[in-house]
Simulated assay, not measured.
Amino acid sequence: MAIASDHLSERESARDVAVWDPLVRLIHWSLALTILVNGAFIDGESKLHEWIGYVALGLVGIRLVWGILGPPHARFSAFPLNPARAIRYVRAVIRGDKIVHLSHNPLGALMAYNLWLTVIVLGVTGYMMTTLRFFGIDWVEQAHELAFNWLLLSVALHVAGVAFDTWRSGVNLVRSMVNGRKRIPDGTKVE
């Protein structure tokens, strides 16, 4: 299905394609920052922890709206939630296909939805712990802690997946999430 291509150096021929709009990039890096700050530097019992959690929840909410109203590569239709497609993609990668997806690849799409859902669970359970009805309720605290541990694992897998896909495809995904453009080696099949 895909045209195999060798990894090209920056000096060899490639084309730049605009993919990530400024709002997608701002939300991505802001969400990463809220997760880092809340998980590593802020006391989980503090009011600041709550407010950073609400910011993270708000960022996900804006991104979900942008998945409907945003430009083509930001829309959910560009990276549908499709586990069967993700399995086919993994098989193609194992075969050595080097196809490049302008939006998320099918496995990356599953990860994006997973990360958003996990932040929502964290936000909801975090909010519940501030209410009289659910304050001190063991299952709510355990759900919040379990969701945070799942988020840490997911972030680690996300970073590993980005590193692997950058190596596999020759497209620097971190740079594309900074400048909004994917530099795609010529001869590479694009979806």
Score class of each variant (00 low, 15 high):
residue 19 V to G: 02
residue 26 L to F: 14
residue 90 V to T: 12
residue 10 E to H: 13
residue 15 R to G: 05
residue 126 G to T: 10
residue 129 M to N: 12
residue 56 A to Y: 10
residue 10 E to G: 09
residue 16 D to F: 11
residue 57 L to D: 09
residue 58 G to D: 05
residue 37 V to I: 13
residue 117 L to Q: 08
residue 15 R to V: 09
residue 94 I to Q: 09
residue 122 L to N: 00
residue 26 L to C: 10
residue 50 E to R: 14
residue 136 G to P: 06
residue 95 R to F: 06
residue 47 K to D: 15
residue 31 L to W: 00
residue 23 L to I: 10
residue 128 M to I: 10
residue 10 E to Y: 11
residue 96 G to F: 01
residue 137 I to Y: 11
residue 27 I to G: 08
residue 51 W to F: 10
residue 72 P to T: 01
residue 100 V to R: 08
residue 110 L to N: 03
residue 8 L to R: 14
residue 85 R to N: 10
residue 105 N to A: 04
residue 74 A to F: 01
residue 9 S to Q: 12
residue 76 F to T: 04
residue 59 L to E: 01
residue 114 N to C: 13
residue 49 H to K: 04
residue 108 G to D: 07
residue 56 A to Q: 08
residue 125 T to H: 00
residue 133 R to E: 14
residue 46 S to I: 00
residue 111 M to D: 05
residue 29 W to Y: 10
residue 90 V to L: 15
residue 128 M to C: 13
residue 67 G to A: 09
residue 68 I to M: 08
residue 62 I to V: 15
residue 115 L to A: 11
residue 12 E to C: 02
residue 132 L to P: 14
residue 71 P to V: 13
residue 99 I to L: 15
residue 68 I to P: 05
residue 115 L to P: 08
residue 49 H to D: 06
residue 82 N to R: 07
residue 27 I to S: 05
residue 84 A to T: 12
residue 8 L to M: 11
residue 116 W to G: 15
residue 84 A to P: 03
residue 10 E to V: 14
residue 70 G to H: 03
residue 68 I to L: 14
residue 31 L to E: 03
residue 105 N to F: 03
residue 29 W to F: 10
residue 48 L to V: 15
residue 95 R to L: 07
